[in-house]
């Protein structure tokens, strides 16, 4: 390993940013894929993998991915919820690879929700 220069320190820091943001809670957008039994059966894993690949290809480091259980709308799986800072959360239904890619590009990166795939704006109130 060559000796580090000052710039290298910053490079290492950048390359690790995604992982550390996830642990820190410092992120701009959070995408939750609903991975209950119903979601997985309907193809949630494909949605998750598509997102992982998209994040890696884009070198995005301010978006975190997470999985959660069944959202209660088993008939419309696979589903995901996209929460971009300062925007209200959006639930998407009946997802596949293409739709996921489009949502990632337009909503997660550019901040414009994709109305045609959305179930509703906002989340249910929880007590």
């Amino acid at each position: 390993m060559a000796k580090l220069k000052i710039e290298d320190l910053r490079k290492i820091k950048e390359s690790k940013k995604g992982t550390l943001n996830l642990r820190d809670g410092a992120y701009r957008a959070k995408v939750t894929v609903h991975m209950g039994t119903c979601g997985i059966a309907a193809g949630a894993r494909i949605v998750m993998n598509t997102l992982i690949t998209a994040i890696e290809q884009n070198n995005t480091d301010d978006v975190i991915l997470t999985s959660s259980g069944c959202a209660g709308l088993c008939s419309q799986e696979p589903m995901m919820t996209v929460e971009v800072n300062d925007l209200s959360p959006v639930k998407y239904v009946y997802l596949d690879e293409e739709k996921t890619k489009k949502i990632f590009r337009e909503h997660v990166i550019d901040g414009k929700p994709v109305a045609e795939y959305a179930l509703s704006m906002g989340s249910e109130t929880t007590y």
């Binding site: 390359s15 995604g18 992982i52 999985s67």
Partner: peptide, 14 residues
């Protein structure tokens, strides 16, 4: 230095 970035949706810290 890590060459390839890797994205995970969950980190389990033991």
């Amino acid at each position: 230095m890590e060459k390839t970035r890797k994205t995970y949706h969950t980190n389990l810290m033991i």
